[in-house]
Amino acid sequence: MNYDPVYAKALRLEPLSRREAETLYEKAPLGELCALAWELRQKHVPGRTVTWQIDRNVNVTNVCISGCKFCNFHCKLHETDRAYVTTIEQYAGKIEEMLALGGDQLLLQGGLHPRLDIVFYENLFRELKRRYPSVRLHALGAPEVAHIARISSLDDETTLRRLMDAGLDSLPGAGAEILDNAVRKRISPGKPDADRWIEVMHTAHRLGLPASATMMYGHVETPAQRVEHLLRIRDLQARCPEGKPGFLAFIPWIFRSTGTELEREGVVTHFSPLEYLRLVALSRIVLYNIPNIQASWLTVGKATAQIALHAGANDMGSIMIEENVVSSAGASNAFDAEGIRQAIREAGFEPRLRDQLYRFRDLR
């Protein structure tokens, strides 16, 4: 089959139809997809620079009512032997360690805690900013924002404005999983649905709050649902008001099943490096309006992430000081600052440290 007309359309940065995207994903030769993705990467991020970041992932709490079947980390409020809420002094110790390693950002996530409302998060963010004004807060996610709004009897815009006033700098793409309500009902029965994720993110876009988007694939979804996920992300980004940052990056990562409820239901990880490369390449091709594609080394490992840099990805993410959720489900990969720089060099690229806005920074 001749895919040249679709390739040419993609190179013109025109949105592909659902049929075109599905055809490329399911039938186009992987080598051709990677070559096209590389050309598109050069349009968005010319040259051979690959960015990376130093931040620390701190869980606000492990209490969550969403019931995600892929998460071993969460617990219920009544599980008093396990449940916790991170204290300010614990944050201080973790931040000091991060700063000593050259980090500049906290990735703050937790769960849908039934008692942590807008006032809790305002107080938390303000205190962290008072103590560490230079540290960026890349915090929460659309499901958490929707939950905070609900239990605080607020709308999304008011919730986000108050969080931003308290110190929220950017919004992670967490909780997207697959943007299909049937899939979400199966794997995350208590989490806000796909439409709510999109509503919150669109509000964040309107308010000028920088954000990222993610995909967790490889569980109960179909290839067509993966493509639909990309199209919904693309179309949401297209609605972002001119002059606002919207989604700065897209990060696809593989579901890890070890010890999860999904594994007990018979859904297990079947990781294929070639399938991951196909998905990364398609992400670059479909998401013509998102500048950065990240290689998720945490879930796919060093070698596959390095190859992904030749298949459309231009970023290696963070060294992720302290990561609990994916690691608790079987991900065992790790990098320090020198390790991630060396991995980028080995792949034939120049490593550059960045901040959350993809601005270059120097490691002190």
Rank of each mutant, 00 (worst) to 15 (best):
P5M: 02
L108P: 05
L287S: 06
S318T: 13
A37M: 07
L140C: 06
L128V: 07
V145P: 04
L207W: 03
R354A: 05
L137E: 04
E79N: 13
L99H: 06
A305Q: 01
D81I: 00
D355H: 05
G317K: 03
G67R: 07
H44R: 15
S212V: 09
L277N: 05
I65T: 14
L287T: 07
Y91H: 14
I319A: 07
R41S: 12
S188Q: 08
N289Q: 12
R232A: 11
M164A: 09
H113G: 01
P245I: 08
R359H: 14
Y25A: 06
L106D: 10
E39S: 15
S272M: 02
D336E: 13
G348L: 11
N59S: 14
L11C: 13
V58T: 14
K27R: 15
G110A: 03
F70M: 14
G93R: 15
E275W: 00
I319K: 04
L140F: 09
F73Q: 06
F247K: 05
E144S: 11
L279K: 05
A337W: 00
S327E: 13
W297G: 02
L30T: 00
H138R: 15
E20R: 13
Q237P: 11
Y121S: 01
F120T: 01
G339W: 00
E350G: 00
K94G: 04
E323Q: 12
K9G: 00
N314F: 00
Y91K: 13
K76T: 10
P192T: 01
N181M: 09
K129W: 10
L168R: 05
S296N: 11
P5G: 02
R136G: 15
R162G: 13
E261R: 15
N2G: 03
A313I: 05
L353I: 09
R284T: 04
Q109C: 03
V220N: 07
V267K: 03
D55E: 11
S153A: 15
S170I: 04
R131N: 10
G31C: 08
S328C: 06
I54D: 08
N292W: 09
K9H: 05
L140K: 08
G243F: 01
S296K: 04
G301A: 06
G339F: 00
K69E: 09
L13G: 09
H229P: 11
K129T: 07
D4H: 12
E26P: 04
R131H: 08
S296I: 04
D156P: 01
